[in-house]
Write a protein that binds this DNA or RNA. Sequence first.
DNA 1: GAAGCGTGGCC
DNA 2: TGGCCAAGCTT
Length: 353
Amino acid sequence: MSRYSWLSERLLPWYREHRRELPWRRTTNPYPIWLSEVILQQTRVDQGLAYWQRFMEHYPSVTDLAAAKEDEVLKLWQGLGYYSRARNLLTAARQVVERHGGHFPADHNALLQLKGVGDYTAAAIASIAFGIPEPVVDGNVYRVLARLLLISTPIDSTAGKREFRERAAELLDAQAPGDHNQALMELGATVCTPRKPLCHQCPLADKCLARAHDAIDRLPVKVGKTKVRIRHFNYLHIEGPQGLVMERRGPGDIWEGLHQLPLVESTKALGSKGLLNSLRTFLPGAVPTARSERVVHVLSHQRIQAVFWRVSIALEPEFSSDRQWVPKDRIHSVAVPRLVERWLNGELPEKRV
DNA sequence: GAAGCGTGGCC
DNA sequence: TGGCCAAGCTT
């Protein structure tokens, strides 16, 4: 019996009454549950739901997914962000097929070995699909526990991670670990929200130490502030009878594996003269004829200032397996960053050079 | 252990 | 507007 039976007595009835009906909650099949957990990493349900449905339709089983091509998976993932999740998803599916005969292992440590499955996701699958008593600690749990127990240790510190995991393990209801974990997360997502939490609807309100100390809006505590790098991207729109020149982004930078227009990066914003100068080496004989307005695209750690240039060429660009003409009717079959998609869809204002 | 990785919504 | 936040993981 848990030392915190009062928590289960409040939390589980609340969850059963208020939980959102989500498709991956209708099953204990680990495949759709795993898929939902990976999609929902750093992602809201509202944003991820359609992607989950799309993946389930294309790949009804982990074996189907394992047989897919990476470009196809990236295309399905397009727009969801953090694209390493998509590449890791495919790798993990193949690991499940090859190492476990197509069945997810009912074991926390074995799950942890899967690519893209970390502490949180392994615990989520173990508890929700298999009923294994592993505590999950995600952003919601950090927030709920910080407030409920008045913990001011920064959640992005090593000490904080250890402390919150210990508390979560103590609080876990080993009789219903899946529901317990989901209830804690659901409470954080819908009631104990970062701003303007709905304390009057909270089943734990009278137990909440932060509420008693009027400290709710100061918890949880975070220390880290990420600094943002500014970059200037000049995309080259080179169109010909054979289509559009596109290239595939390589490893070691953002948007790995996605496609784009040929890119000239500069240290500062370029005018048409500046671009012409850069093109002298990058694409001899090329001349800019039109451009988009400057568009700012914000990523978690970078701020991209981009201009799309229409360019006429005298010589063929250099091609490789990663840069080639893409026929017009194939352009929308390759995965591109949102920024590039906006240009290709004609959503960016254009002007003369 | 810190840094890097997308996109969209909210105020 | 700019900053914060969202069911984290990898290197």
